Amino acid sequence: MAVTALTLSACQSGGKDSALHSSAAAAAVAPHGKAANAPSADRAPSAAQVPSAAQARTSAMTASDRCTADTLSVSLGRTDIGAGNIHIPLVFPNKGKTACSLRGFPGVSLTLKEGTPVGKPATRSGAAGDAVRLRPGQSAHAVLHTVNDGVSDTPCWSTAQLVRVYPPGSKEAMTAGTDGLRVCGGEFDVTSVKPGATD
């Protein structure tokens, strides 16, 4: 009986120790499990949250890629007259050493030689269109439009000597001779830029 009682006591004692050991182990594991699952202010962002170098450069590349007055020249192409309308290409060669892009409408106005404005700036005609990529030496163009004298009762403007042009997105103007361009009928508009020197 005494032996049996000692054995039983030892088993009960061992059971308590085992239970206490198990509880302590669980308590030791629990904080690690919680820390692994809980968000931490010190944790580094995942790869998906970090922008790549290409993404970071996107806006800067877009701005620097635009053709400007510094990298372009401008001239008027051959006048096309038909059905009472006058169309004149406004040609933009890329004179720079790197490729650049143009998209949208140029700002266009007419002046006398000393800079006095003639009439009003050209209005926009048609859609903005797609971007035109110009390698060095390549050209884009927009088309100026007016009508022949007599098509409308609206009087013609004075004959312009210069055309002042702001490339799309540029705040700097360029000028070119007009070879006697005269706007009539109060109609003077310009298309968006297109590839090539002419259509």
Rank of each mutant, 00 (worst) to 15 (best):
G15W: 11
M174E: 03
A54T: 10
R182V: 03
L110W: 01
T62S: 12
P39C: 06
N37S: 13
A54V: 08
R66H: 06
V108D: 00
Q12M: 15
P89C: 01
L181G: 01
V91D: 03
M174K: 06
Q12P: 02
T62D: 14
M1D: 14
V3C: 11
G104K: 02
D80F: 12
A142I: 01
T191P: 02
R43H: 07
K97W: 10
G177K: 15
L134M: 10
P45L: 06
T191C: 06
T146I: 05
A30Y: 05
S158Q: 13
G96W: 07
A122N: 00
S75C: 04
D189A: 10
R133Y: 14
P45T: 06
S46D: 12
S139H: 03
N94P: 04
H87S: 14
R103D: 08
L8G: 06
S9D: 11
G107Q: 00
A131R: 04
A28L: 13
S46W: 09
H32E: 09
A26F: 06
V108R: 00
S9F: 11
S170K: 04
A5W: 12
M1H: 12
S158L: 11
P195M: 07
G150Y: 03
S9G: 15
A26K: 11
P51T: 03
H87V: 10
G129V: 09
T191D: 02
A131P: 01
L144G: 03
S46A: 14
A47V: 11
T62N: 12
M1V: 12
V91G: 04
D130L: 11
A127Q: 15
R78M: 13
F188D: 00
L72A: 02
S152N: 06
L8D: 12
L90Y: 04
Q12H: 11
G82Y: 03
S13I: 14
A69Y: 14
D70V: 08
R182M: 05
V143K: 08
G119P: 04
S40H: 08
A176C: 05
T71C: 10
S158G: 09
T4M: 10
R133D: 15
R182E: 03
A47K: 09
G33Y: 07
D65Q: 13
G77V: 04
D17N: 14
G107A: 00
A5D: 14
D70I: 06
V147P: 01
C184H: 02
N37Q: 14
D149E: 15
A122L: 00
A99W: 05
A60F: 07
D80I: 08
I81P: 00
A26W: 05
R103T: 11
S192V: 03
H141W: 02
A27D: 15
A30M: 10
A176G: 00
S158H: 09
K120I: 04
K95I: 15
L72R: 01
P89E: 01
V3Y: 13
S139G: 00
G126F: 08
R43M: 12
A173W: 05
Q161N: 14
A35K: 12
A35G: 08
L134C: 09
P31S: 05
